[in-house]
Design a binder for these strands. Structure first.
Lengths: 112, 112
DNA sequence: CAATCATATACCCATATGGGTAGATGTAAA
DNA sequence: TTTACATCTACCCATATGGGTATATGATTG
């Protein structure tokens, strides 16, 4: 088997840099595809593909606006990621101490 | 070109479900590879591969312990993800209203 | 209906993965 | 140093991507 489909999971959806950029851009408001493509500096089809992934995991929604299709942010899905990482908050504070202990171990090993 | 290397980015590293499981398991304390593989229900080489990715992005560190190699959590890298998603906090609260407005739009379109 | 603009899709490619298996590498114990 | 145990690597596979280009689909306007 191969890897899980990007399209099925918010974690995978935001693993792509361009897609994160899109989400950031949409914080400033809705945008039609062409404008997003321009701001990202990628061809329109590429933008459409990324938008599709984001749409399928529910991070953006689209709305018809005349000839254009305007995409907007629906950040609710990011909450899950925020909470998951938040579950490690106490650990990244502890990590300095742990890392320190680790360094001590390395020194000890080297001397042996 | 193809996609960016998983190994170079924390966002990509945690996009894999198994790797997230590993991180969660390590919250309870350090673990040797075999134990992690057992708890994940995957063959040891698979665990080693995932651990390697996590190690390369700095989310875990390893320590020699006799014949075994013990892996421990270094959650500092998750902070970046937490903060990035946190940048959308105000939006996922707003999203309900926006979604509502969106639904209104749809109704309007349908009636036209 | 024809012409045009805005997107979405269909393909084609090269490559990164994740999984499984067998063998290499390291380390500890007999 | 020979044997046994714990991991890591090297391969082989099938597949999911992301990128680029050409084309289909939709919608607006003349």
């Amino acid at each position: 088997m191969a890897r899980a489909a990007t399209t099925s999971d918010v974690f995978n959806a935001i693993a792509e840099p361009r897609r994160r950029e899109i989400l950031v851009l949409l914080r400033a408001g809705e945008r039609p595809v062409a404008e997003l493509a321009l701001e990202l500096g990628i061809p329109q089809p590429g933008a459409s593909k990324h938008l599709r992934v984001l749409r399928e995991v529910g991070l953006v929604r689209d709305r018809k606006a005349g000839k254009q299709r305007v995409y907007g942010l629906d950040a609710r899905g990011l909450r899950r990621v925020h909470e998951w990482t938040g579950g490690f908050e106490q650990f990244w504070n502890e990590s300095f101490d742990r890392l320190d202990a680790y360094v001590q171990d390395l020194k000890r090993e080297r001397q042996e």
